[in-house]
Design a protein around this nucleic acid. Structure first.
Lengths: 357, 357
DNA sequence: GACAAGAATTTGATCGATCAAATTTTGCGC
DNA sequence: GCGCAAAATTTGATCGATCAAATTCTTGTC
């Protein structure tokens, strides 16, 4: 049983091929009676247009290209999993599909753009892990290829063209500021920040949020001693946490969940009284450590953490691109070209004090 | 500057369109002199055939469909990340691409097959998270659609047709057996197994490996008390670990890394002498707990774990499908239809005794 | 009924590749 | 040079959709 085509359906109904096509793509051009008749037949036959034929004629593939980043760190990398999942779902809902590809570097990625554009016919690209002076954004702009980025440009030149491309990011500073507010509400006054040694603009942003919130607490407080940095590992979190506790910190806001796991360990080591089973549950027991990213690992360990709304980010990325690729026939308003999403702190009770489940 | 096509290149070279096509697809049909000339021109022009045009004419999309499973558990779910990455890379190397889609259930997934086959023109499917009496495998077989599964069928009926589809899996029993061997070499004699309450065939398989290895150690040893089960969470690992230690276990082989994290915690709690900084490093300090899956979290925490060669599995899946989809023109031998891959134990030193880095 | 304008539908071509058959070229033997 | 068979190349059609222009139909007015 051959699958139905435009031609077979048109012959069966005694209308033109173009009428069938119009019923699907421009129903306003078809008389209501014809519309109903044809729609019923399309439904009965289970006819669906071939994507390949469409792509060939329209020169549009309805595919968005994205490089699949290797999971360099299973703790923090799970953020991109959720992003990928939300992208796949949003694209699917909008009639698009994701085309994934692997690359060894940004430069290798750029080398593949020709193939993706000319062979696969990709309509637009989604970029993650953006960096300063990203060769990818430059190439795509020079080539006139639509794209959107998950991450701010962070460019230092105010008039830089790179800042004009569409992007969505999470307001890291707002997240760490909220973490400070939460710890303050629990009675902490010596709230430290543990960041990365080479944090880049993302790390600086998260630190700035902590700093801003701390300054808002007390004008005269010297917070410079409540700041440290370490490699983005659990061990780094342990050593950095030890240092901050030695400097008088009673709570720590961390730039990542990896650091937070380690920092929580150092608190248990140097402040065991906070974790004694017989100790009454006081403010200090609740969450002396707040991580960043709300990874499933943090959740499993009962760590409080700043949650990034990556699902919202993914949806907006898809909106940005589908809007740009649409024919502008609709009256829908343009999505925001630059969107900074607010994260929120998820409070938890740390293991192993969690009640048996 | 319009991109080159078969027609433009043929006109430029004074040969037929089909000759250009033959140079690319059937070079043996072309005279060497013509072959060289045309190849040089293809290279110079950067000509590449359009995937959409190819798909339309050949009725092959060169795409493999796979449902993107939600990350239900960031600890164990990272396995599927590596699988996805390896699939993407292997497919890419073989000239295929992955088409991802989301679905809410196996039934929802099956509902989408029509769209994926008729619209997107997917050539074959890759299944994960297979279950007994999987509606997906039945549908795909009934429909004559090529597919391969990451996971054994586990069907109870020996003549069941489902057992005939291509599959790749990891030998869980071999993994836990090796873990027992490793713990034995470290001097342990009371090696317990902590599995899932509703482990299904996968959980049973892993337990069977532990059981087999334990029986091989001592014919008369009563191992029934060295077995427990818990929910697949860290807390579950803690409570299960406590129980097994109370029954005399000195080491624990776990069905997952989540359980292992918890079991390690219970060992630290009930056998702190094993973790004292002043304790000499003896066999018992090395790895009294072995997890399963070698997740990045286990690695970060310094846990020993059974590593699944998911990259090998992914590569074999792609081989299985590309072989089935190929024209059989080549003399390459068929890949094994049913492949059980051996995992291996990765030994580590648990934090926080790891030396400062 | 004739005419004009707009709505509805149809017709012909196109997208860019490969399939399949037809045609031309080449090499060899007589 | 001719005939034949195989190699090499070309020609015509096809895949299934949409674009774009042409044609037909419908409605309203005089």
């Amino acid at each position: 049983m051959a699958r139905p085509t435009l031609a077979s359906l048109a012959a069966e109904l005694g209308v033109s091929r173009q009428t069938i096509s119009n019923v699907i793509n421009s129903p306003d051009r078809v008389k209501p009676a014809t519309l109903e008749r044809v729609r019923a037949a399309i439904e009965a036959a289970g006819y669906r247009p071939s994507a390949a034929a469409r792509q060939l004629r329209t020169r549009r593939s309805m595919n968005l290209g994205m490089r699949l980043m290797p999971a360099t760190d299973g703790i923090n990398g799970s953020i991109l999993d959720r992003f990928l999942h939300a992208l796949t779902e949003s694209a699917q809902d909008a009639g698009y599909r994701l085309t994934l590809f692997c690359a060894d570097s940004h430069e290798d990625e750029v080398l593949q753009y020709g193939e993706l554009l000319n062979v696969a016919g990709i309509d637009a690209f989604i970029l993650t892990s953006s960096s300063r002076n990203d060769v990818r954004t430059k190439w795509l702009q020079d080539n006139g290829t639509p794209f959107a980025v998950f991450g701010r440009p962070w460019e230092t030149a105010p008039g830089d063209d790179a800042a004009r491309h569409p992007w969505v990011d999470i307001d890291g500073a707002a997240g760490t500021a909220e973490a400070v507010t939460m710890l303050t509400a629990q009675g902490h006054t010596h709230i430290a920040f543990l960041g990365w040694q080479d944090g880049g603009p993302v790390g600086e942003d998260r630190q700035a949020g902590w700093e801003r919130a701390m300054r808002a607490l007390g004008a005269g407080q010297d917070i410079s001693r409540l700041r440290a940095s370490a490699p983005d590992t659990i061990s780094g979190g342990i050593s950095g946490g030890r240092e901050l506790i030695a400097r008088g910190a009673t709570a720590i806001v961390c730039a990542s969940d990896s650091l937070a796991i380690g920092a929580a360990e150092s608190l248990r080591e140097l402040r065991p009284e906070l974790f004694s089973p017989g100790q009454p549950a006081g403010p200090g027991v609740r969450a002396a450590v707040v991580g960043f990213d709300d990874t499933p690992v943090a959740a499993a360990l009962g760590l409080s953490s700043v949650a990034q709304p990556v699902e919202d980010a993914a949806r907006h990325i898809v909106r940005l691109l589908t809007f740009e690729l649409a024919d502008r026939a609709g009256g829908s308003s343009a999505p925001e070209q630059h969107l900074l999403l607010a994260p929120h702190v998820v409070e938890r009770v740390p293991l192993p004090l969690a009640p048996p489940r």
